[in-house]
Amino acid sequence: MNIVECTNVKKIYQQDKLEVRALNDVSLSIKKGDFIAIAGPSGSGKTTLLNIIGGLDVADSGRVLVDGNVLSTMSQTELATLRLRKVGFVFQAYNLILVLSALENVEFVMLLQGVPSSERRERAKAILDDVGLSDMYDRRPAELSGGQQQRVAVARAIVSNPSIVLADEPTANLDSKTGASLLEMMEHMNEKKHVTFIFSTHDKMVMNYAHRLVSLRDGQVVDDQVHER
């Protein structure tokens, strides 16, 4: 079953009278439970693609299907609901709400979803334990290392069992060792909870973790291979 289906997706940005084809006819199907990397150099359209799949941005043409929803027909509010219920995001940096503790950051999404508070707390603790932060519940983001912050972000993204987790260069601000352990943790979560991860990167080491590697260049898919594990 395909959890994401992009068909002939195009996105053109207007920059000082110059047209930038950020996505030029991208078609891509992603299976549920996959652990897939979108790879490509800077400016190749990775962020644009993830934003469009996550409903943060809208394609100019083409069709995007996420867990059965046709994004182009949805209103801003419907897209917000989709993000809340079905999409988890991990950004490159500044993922967390600064005034909330790690635990509260994870709880926050469930609060928005209307999960009762005791259940919220239980689930948030469990997921933080899963990502290896069992003794950091009460730390504020400023008191966590970059790698720990990204772990909290991953915990928050998967806590409500979304259809997909979109991670835009999640390791870009981390050293390679920390990046690798974050990737291992994500892979572990992918296996344990069957969450679909779609992450972008331009780092060879990170690409090696992917079960499937889609390469973008100038807004087009230039390569698509499944890694045997």
Binding site: G54, L56, Q76, T77, A80, T81, L82, R83, L84, R85, V87, F89, F91, Y94, N95, I97, L98, F108, V109, L112, R156
Partner: peptide, 16 residues
């Protein structure tokens, strides 16, 4: 601005 963008990305509706 960034933080509100994040909240929005997390699915927080404008009313919230």
């Amino acid at each position: 601005i960034r933080e509100f963008g994040l909240l929005n990305a997390l699915g927080m509706k404008p009313g919230w």
